[in-house]
Simulated assay, not measured.
Amino acid sequence: MKQLSQIYLLLLLVTGVTGCTTIGYYSQAVSGHLSLMMNGDSVDGLIARGTTPDDLKQKLTTSQQARRFARDALSLPVGDAFTDYVALDRPWVVVNLVAVPEFSLEPHRWCYPVLGCQAYRGYFELDDAVAEQADFRETGYDTFIGGVTAYSTLGWFDDPLHSGFTRMSDDRMVALMFHELAHRVVYIGDDTAFNESFATAVELEGLKLWSDRQGNPDSFQRAFERLQQRNQTLALVETTTTRLESLYQQRDRLPVETLREQKAELLAQLLQDYLELSSQWTQPGPFGENPTSLNNANLALFRQYNQHVPGFRQLLRDQNHDFEAFYRAVEALSKRPETERSRRLSALSERFVEDF
C-alpha cells in the first residue's frame, strides 16, 4: 500500500504540471520506475530457490550482508531498499543528460516537484535523452549522456537491486549500495554537488570499513586505486576549469572564434594529460577508457560528484568516525545558505590529508 500511495502522489504531481513536454517526461519517469517495481522478485526468495544460478546467489547474499552492514555499522536508513531483484536487459537502469552552455561551467538545471532542481535529467529510454540532447546542441550547449547503474528515490520507494549491481565486482556493488542509501540521509533540492559529494564520501568511508570487517584487503586495494585515479583526475580537471573559467569571464570582450579556439586547446590538453595518466592504470578511469573528446558537460558532471568529497571526509573525521554524529553535522550544514556551505566544505577540504 505504501508503494501504491506514493505512485498515486507522483501521478498527481505529473498531472498538476503544465506543458506537454514536461508531462511526457514525468510520465516516462513514473512508468519506468513502476516497471522496475512490478518486475522484482524477492531477494531472499531467489537466494533460497534451488534454480537460482550460483553466481547470482552469491551476489544476492553479499548484497544482503551489505544492507545489514549499512544499517548497523554506517547507520544508514536502509528500510526495505534492495530487498527485491530485477533482471534488466541493459547494463544501465537510466541514462542521464547533462547540458552546459558553450562558454560556461554551470550546468543547466531541471526543476521538479518535491526534488527541487538538479544538474542532470534522467531517462529510462536512450532515444528520449538523445532527442532532448539534440535540442540543446542546436542552441550551442555542450552535452553528455551517460549510463547510470543506479539511482535513489530518497526513501519514497523501496529501491530494488538489479542486474546492473550484480554485474559489478563485489566491492563496486557494495560501494554503490552505500552511495545510493546515503541519499536517503540528506538531500538538498538545488545542490547536486553537495548531494553527490556527500554520498561519494559515505561510499568511500563505508567501503573502507566494510573491507576491514570482511578481512579482504585486496578488495579495498582495488577501491583505493580507483580513489587515487579519481583524485588525480580531479587535480587535472580543477586546473583546466580554473583556466576555462578565466577564459569564459572574457566572453563579452573576446571574439567567439577566439573563445572557441582557446577552449578547444585547453580541453585538448586536458584529454592528452588524462590519456597519459590513465595509460598507467589497471582499471578504467573516471572518463572511461580512451575517451576521444571532453567538453564542459564532462567536466561539470565530474565535479558534481567529487569537488566536496575531501571536505565531507574531513567532517566525518572531526566526528571521530561516528556516522550518526556525522549525519547530524551534515544535516545542520545543509540548512545553511549555499555560499556558506561551499565555504565550509572548502575549509574542511584544506585540512584533509589522505590516510587510506
Rank of each mutant, 00 (worst) to 15 (best):
K263V: 08
Y120E: 06
E289W: 11
T339R: 11
Y26Q: 04
A29I: 06
S152P: 07
L176M: 10
T282S: 11
W281A: 09
E340V: 11
T240W: 05
S346M: 15
G116D: 01
G206N: 06
V185R: 13
L115T: 13
P337I: 04
Y120L: 04
M38C: 07
I47P: 01
E261T: 12
T192Y: 03
I188L: 12
R341Y: 05
C117V: 00
A150G: 12
F312C: 07
P310D: 01
P284H: 07
V98R: 00
D142N: 13
F287L: 05
V353Y: 00
K263Q: 08
H162L: 03
G122A: 15
M177R: 04
Q249A: 12
P53G: 02
P337L: 09
T240D: 04
D55N: 14
T22N: 13
S346V: 13
T143E: 07
H183C: 08
G19L: 01
W110M: 01
T62I: 10
Q250D: 13
A70G: 12
D355A: 08
M177V: 08
L236R: 01
D135N: 10
R67I: 00
K263L: 08
W281C: 04
D80H: 07
R222L: 10
L97S: 05
L181T: 05
L294C: 10
Y120D: 04
A134M: 13
A199F: 03
E125D: 13
F312T: 10
L267N: 12
F356Y: 15
T240M: 03
V130T: 15
